[in-house]
């Protein structure tokens, strides 16, 4: 039966692994890939010499987000394995960089996405890998 409600047609049940809450997570990864990528591009191209280590970590973060986004969209066995590696690196990265940026602020004169455990981004960078790993675990047992 056609449904023309302004709020949208009735939803279908969440079926496959690439729909439902996973979609929301993929969008978040996409936004962070964009944010971290743009930030790293600006930092590396305009003031690389000021803090090479911090800015290279920014670039690493960007690469990790891009790889995770693509792997989550692709799905399948290979996609899942790539996503698992990327998201694990992401979790380690946010914890290590977050800790270092608090212990040795001089080494991080400019914010990166992972500084202070992602406080510049509402701590989403800290929550994202945890949700990502939970999702992968659920998908892994689903098929």
């Amino acid at each position: 039966m056609p449904d023309r409600s302004a709020l949208g047609p009735a939803a279908e049940a969440s079926g496959g692994a690439s729909t439902g809450p996973a979609r929301v997570l993929v969008l978040l990864y996409g936004i962070f890939a964009l944010a971290a990528g743009a930030r790293a591009a600006v930092q590396l191209s305009t003031r690389f010499a000021e803090a090479p280590v911090a800015y290279l970590l920014s670039a690493l973060a960007a690469v990790v987000y891009v790889v995770a986004t693509v792997a989550l969209v692709r799905g399948g066995r290979g996609g899942r394995r790539t996503a698992l590696v990327a998201i694990t690196v992401e979790l380690v990265g946010v914890l290590v960089v977050g800790t270092l940026s608090l212990v040795d602020p001089a080494a991080f004169p400019d914010e990166t996405v992972w500084s202070g455990y992602g406080r510049g981004y509402g701590f989403v960078p800290l929550v994202l890998p945890v949700l990502g790993l939970l999702l992968l675990r659920r998908r892994g047992t689903a098929d």
Partner: peptide, 18 residues
């Protein structure tokens, strides 16, 4: 684009996050 190709109830949340 991402929300329109989503056929479950989570389409709205995708748009909300964006």
């Amino acid at each position: 684009l991402w929300a329109r190709s989503e056929h479950t109830r989570w389409a709205g949340t995708v748009l909300a996050v964006a």
